[in-house]
Amino acid sequence: MNPQGLLEQFLGPNAGQAAGGAMQNAKGKLANSGLGGVAGGLAAGGLLGVLLGNKKARKTAGKLAGGVVGYGGAAALGALAFRAYSNWQAGQQAPQQAAAQQPAAAPPPALPPAGSKFLPAAAPASNGRPFELALVMAMIAAANADGHIGPDEQRLIFNKVGELPLDAEDKAFVFDALGSPPSLQDIANLAEGPEQAAELYLVSRLAIDPDHPMEQAYLEALASRLSLPGELVGHLESQAEAATA
């Protein structure tokens, strides 16, 4: 099984890129242009666009899909989650520094350091399996939040998965998850620490166009089950909006 390749097929078209090469490429691009170029195509790439059906990200897939080409969707996702988390931490520290009359800290880096838990391949989920699989399950669960994935949509997704360069085990994993989507609590239980919790929320938000009360309720419940502070959720929302704007 190739968890990294499977995640890339969901997040963007560069499924064959190795994790190290993707991260190195992302570093170069982000250093020059910030997160915007990477984020621009994240929600429209690969199977995530199919999961969203005819929602906004699918409608804009043509002009956005190129944004993540060459960067690696997993690397982009980790960068977005890291940026949100770093901004939240900086906001938490600012009042304390002001009260102690200390100079403000330097702005956080744009990319997670090597070995950071914000890189999906860096640490397993709480069940001991690769965290990339947890992120795929989170997208599938979130996409089912409003019940729009009916039999016709499911057949479309199955056909799309069948065309992808995935091995039989990867395809079986996706088919099983689509046939019996994990529950919200199943997804929340997969987080091993706050970094993974933040990333699970972010990828779930990318799989939802929250214009439906059921989708909004799902995200609120997920944030609660993941024990994410409201301010951090706000930063994650900002990064998700930038990725799909």
Rank of each mutant, 00 (worst) to 15 (best):
A243K: 10
A57N: 04
G49H: 00
K27H: 06
I157L: 15
P112I: 09
Q24V: 10
Q216P: 13
S204I: 07
A243S: 14
P95R: 04
A94P: 01
K29C: 04
D211A: 14
G72A: 06
A122T: 06
V68M: 05
A19L: 05
A114M: 03
I140Y: 02
V174H: 01
A197L: 10
S116V: 06
G72V: 03
L52C: 08
K29F: 12
A39Y: 01
D186V: 04
G234V: 10
D176Y: 00
A31K: 12
P181G: 04
A76S: 12
D209V: 15
A39Q: 04
G72E: 09
Q216E: 10
A39V: 11
G12L: 02
P108Q: 02
Q4G: 12
A61F: 11
K59E: 06
L119E: 06
A143K: 05
K55C: 08
Q216I: 15
K160G: 00
G72H: 07
P120T: 05
G20C: 09
Q93W: 05
D186I: 00
T60C: 08
L7Y: 00
A223K: 02
L11D: 09
G162I: 14
L52E: 03
G179P: 04
P124I: 01
R205K: 12
M139F: 02
A145T: 10
E199Y: 03
A106G: 02
L164R: 09
R58K: 07
V69E: 10
L135M: 07
A242T: 13
Q9M: 03
Y85Q: 14
E220K: 07
A114I: 09
G230Q: 13
G16P: 03
A44T: 12
A26F: 05
Y71W: 12
P130Q: 06
G28K: 09
A223T: 11
A110L: 12
P13I: 08
A105C: 03
